[in-house]
Design a protein around this nucleic acid. Structure first.
Lengths: 217, 217
DNA sequence: CATGCTTTCATGTGATCACAAAGCCCGCCG
DNA sequence: CGGCGGGCTTTGTGATCACATGAAAGCATG
């Protein structure tokens, strides 16, 4: 008899996958700082696995750009240059504007309601100055919308970009002291309600590129 | 003394990297058919390495979408649905139009000359009905142009899409019996010469999406 | 001849080990 | 006091092995 089959994907999954997922969310949510070093043995110790699954998880994350491998194989979170950050922001704009546009005709009231719920939590995180919580709920807002686009490959690419920006976003929003609620999110919701595609594209583009300009100079 | 330091990146690199690169080009150039099965021990035997580096290479390629891992861990090249193909084509259009647009102001005569040289080889491959050769030189044409965009992250994403489409492109172009030279490539070159950005965007979009419509129906 | 089961084999997973090289730290010498 | 060298430690790499699982082949049965 098989004792596996847990709730969703927490245990019962291969060890390397469990490690991969844990590290992935940690990086995407900005729980690690740019340039932070990781070691295979350290990861193995933390997750109580051997080096083998740790190595596979790291390799996979490195392939997605979430981790940087030095020439000697040392692994750390990437420290992005300003140029790279701007390029990734442009990628976010490109991909997410398209995703939002594709989601628009499928966005019904239930979705908009859920987006408003999530957005309330985003505002709460901003007011609490909880950087990690803000990043997490902000990404949840975007993902909830984009899921309606029915474009899994495109969404995967967008998430890859989020992953690459994770540690840097934390560092950015961490030193950003603002308490104003997410205005662009309101514009996105309004455009969704009105079925205004150009407005939606503009709002998404603004939301995605804002906060990443404040580093130049 | 260290005997390493070869020409470029062929040997002297870690075994897993060597295996990764070999498999990657094989997949991207369409040298494998969709759904083809691979085994870790088989890869290890072919490249004279153990299972460990073979596993890392496979894991990395799977993370890029170049390989499909079944729930039991079996590895094969992906068999794409029509919807997935259309989505990837849309991604190509999105990314490559942007890359071409960014390359345009930097495209000097030397680049255009080189593109014309490559394009001659593309035409030759078409006339010889060499599917793999066609895919390889066609991608070289695009990559040569996009390198001028100075956008490494964006180029990497485009290459990831190529990788996912590799086996399918082979299957498509394999049963496509045409001998007409690549007309869209000429349009791209003409637009580059004229500095015509809208024309360039249109030409790239056409080139990228053509040949992927002929599967619907 | 088709169908169901059982046995067998191939395959992925994860742990452990030996090895080489890259850091790192401490002490020595200028 | 500062730069530098040598030994120690940490780290990644790759090989090998035991194990569990899932697929495939063979066999018997209807």
């Amino acid at each position: 008899m098989n004792l596996t089959a847990r709730s969703s994907q927490d245990a019962a999954a291969p060890a390397h996958d469990r490690v991969y997922r844990a590290l992935r969310t940690r990086i995407m949510h900005g729980e690690v700082t740019p340039g932070a070093a990781l070691t295979l043995r350290g990861i193995g110790r933390e997750f109580e696995v051997s080096m083998t699954p740790a190595r596979e998880a790291v390799r996979r994350l490195a392939a997605e750009g979430a981790l940087f491998l030095s020439s000697s194989g040392r692994v750390s979170t990437p420290e992005l240059t300003n140029e790279r950050i701007e390029e990734l922001a442009a990628l976010r704009a490109l991909l997410e504007v398209e995703l939002a546009s594709r989601a628009l005709p499928r966005a019904h009231m239930a979705l908009i309601d859920r987006l408003q719920m999530i957005n309330a939590t985003v505002a709460e995180m901003v007011s609490k100055r909880d950087a990690v919580g803000y990043i997490r709920t902000n990404l949840e807002f975007h993902r909830t919308l984009y899921l309606r686009a029915q474009a899994p490959a495109m969404l995967a690419m967008a998430e890859t970009v989020w992953l690459q920006l994770g540690p840097t976003m934390r560092a950015l929003y961490g030193r950003l002291r603002r308490t104003d609620p997410p205005q662009n999110h309101r514009l996105i919701i309004a455009a969704l309600k009105a079925g205004d595609e150009p407005g939606l594209r503009l709002a998404v583009r603004s939301d995605v590129t804002q906060g990443l300009r404040l580093l130049a100079g």
